[in-house]
Structure formats: structure tokens, C-alpha cells
């Protein structure tokens, strides 16, 4: 697995045909305005780290990108396609964006192999044998091939999260969303998950990563996006953001997490 050092090189974005575009997105929970006029566009192969204080709307932003949450106004397109409201078409398009959760959310009653093959078989219509072959390769790639026939409860959190990444990759997504993928892990397991994510970034995957791991943001991200109270306040390359945050709230936020 390769390690990118000191700020990954910018992805080739010659034609400027962004993969993910959010334009004027607003989201409310009742009267609570959770996303405010969010504009964000993400190039193919770009790795964007999303940071901000608790409750700033990072998870909500991720969840709206693959329509786990609906939005009240604005537009979200993936590869120039707008997501439909609901129904079978949405389900299919949703699988084009992989999602990795803080709490892993592996299907508790299934082995890792079954977890990884369920989507390819039921959504993509792959034959079981083909799906299993592909799944084994993915489980090997994230380093849990030896546990393929175990239940999630029988392996460590780090191993579960790596299997969850394999499950998302099995759908051959165009982009991957990570919502605090290492926040529920014991410290000694954080790096094994971050290493898998670095490998994925190096392979050219488009990624949005919500994380408090500033080391990862510095080394693997092309851009850092800072959110507060539902708005994007800053959007800069990691070096510029960490050395010289422009807005007061970003400086405040950084001083708090760096002392921790």
C-alpha cells in the first residue's frame, strides 16, 4: 500500500467535468436549517476532507449526496445525473456512491462474505459465484480475507470497518463517502483503516471524508472544506488551510482540536 506524503498531488482535472456537484442546497429538519445554500463541486479522483464542529451538518451533507436524506431546495448531481426523489431508479443510482459509516453497520446476521456479496447479487444481478470471487478479492485487498466466513461480531472494529469499505467497493461506486470512519475505533486500529483509505485515494477514487484525523487530511486530501452551522466557510488545499485559516471560526476550531 502506498503512502502519499505531504499533500497529495492534485488530480488531473483538465476538462473540468466535476463528478459531484451541489448547487444551492438547503436542508431543513422541521424549522431547523441544517444546510444553508451549500455549493460544492468535486472533481473525479479528488479527495475532499470535510471538517467542522459537532452539529455543523457534515453527516447531513454526506447523507444528502446519496439521498439518504432529501433536500428542500437546490440541486445535487452525480456524474451529471440528478438523483430522482424515490423509487427503484434512486436505489440503483444510490449504489453508485459508496458510504462508510462511523458505526460500520455491517449486516449483523451475515458473514463478511455475505455482507460484501449481497449488493452485487441483489442490485447488480451478479451470479453468486462471480460475486463471491470478486468479494474475496476485495476482502483480501482490505486485509480481512481470512475472516470472510466470520460474523461481524467475531472480529475487531478495525476489521469490521475495513470489511464495510470492501462492501461499499463491491458496488464499484464512482465515489465514496466516509462519515467519521475511525471515530468509533480504538486508537490502535485507526491506522489500519486510514491505510486502506490512503490506498483507495492513491488508486484514484473520488472521496469525501468527514474526519477528525488531521494527519490524514494533511497527507491524503486535495482539499479541506470547513463547515459551521450548515454553511461552507472555507475551501482550501490542506497546507493553506492548516497554515493559514482565513476565517475566525476555522482558526477557533483548529486551535481546539490541535490541543487535543
Amino acid at each position: 500500500m502506498q503512502f502519499a506524503v505531504e499533500g497529495a498531488p492534485a488530480p488531473a482535472t483538465a476538462g473540468r467535468d466535476p463528478l459531484i456537484v451541489l448547487a444551492g442546497v438547503n436542508k431543513f429538519y422541521g424549522s431547523h436549517h441544517v444546510l444553508r445554500d451549500v455549493d460544492l463541486s468535486i472533481e473525479r479522483g479528488e479527495v475532499v476532507v470535510l471538517i467542522g464542529p459537532s452539529g455543523s451538518g457534515k453527516s447531513t451533507l454526506c447523507r444528502t449526496i446519496n439521498r439518504l436524506e432529501s433536500i428542500q431546495s437546490g440541486r445535487i448531481t452525480i456524474d451529471r445525473q440528478a438523483l430522482p426523489e424515490e423509487g427503484a431508479e434512486l436505489a440503483r443510482l444510490r449504489s453508485e456512491v459508496g458510504m462508510v459509516f462511523q458505526s460500520f453497520n455491517l449486516f449483523a446476521h451475515m458473514t463478511l462474505l455475505q455482507n460484501v456479496t449481497l449488493g452485487p447479487i441483489k442490485v447488480r444481478g451478479l451470479r453468486r459465484a462471480d460475486a463471491e470471487e470478486k468479494a474475496m478479492a476485495l476482502l483480501e485487498r482490505v486485509g480481512v480475507g481470512g475472516h470472510a466466513h466470520k460474523l461481524p461480531s467475531q472480529i475487531s472494529g478495525g476489521q469490521q470497518q475495513r470489511a464495510a469499505i470492501a462492501r461499499a467497493l463491491a458496488m464499484e461506486p464512482k465515489a465514496m463517502l466516509f462519515d467519521e470512519p475511525t471515530s468509533a475505533l480504538d486508537p490502535e486500529m485507526i491506522n489500519e483503516v486510514l491505510d486502506v483509505m490512503r490506498g483507495l485515494a492513491d488508486s484514484g477514487m473520488t472521496m469525501i471524508v468527514v474526519t477528525h484525523e488531521m494527519g490524514f487530511a494533511r497527507s491524503a486530501a486535495h482539499r479541506v472544506v470547513f463547515m459551521d452551522q450548515g454553511s461552507i466557510l472555507e475551501d482550501a488545499p490542506p497546507a493553506a488551510f492548516f497554515e493559514n485559516p482565513r476565517c475566525e471560526r476555522a482558526r477557533d476550531f483548529l486551535s481546539k482540536i490541535i490541543t487535543h
Binding site: N66, A91, R92, R94, S95, G98, M99, F101, G119, V123
Partner: peptide, 22 residues
């Protein structure tokens, strides 16, 4: 746990599939 249904939806399973398989 609601995370189970969420993960199922995220890999593209529909409502019925999520219910039956997960």
C-alpha cells in the same frame, strides 16, 4: 438498529429487499 437499514439502502437495496434480506 437503524444503521442496518441505512447501510442496506446505501448499497442500493430497495425497501422490500432491505426488509427481506436485512
Amino acid at each position: 438498529s437503524p444503521g442496518q437499514a441505512e447501510a442496506a439502502r446505501a448499497i442500493g437495496l430497495g425497501f422490500g429487499q432491505t426488509l427481506c434480506h436485512v
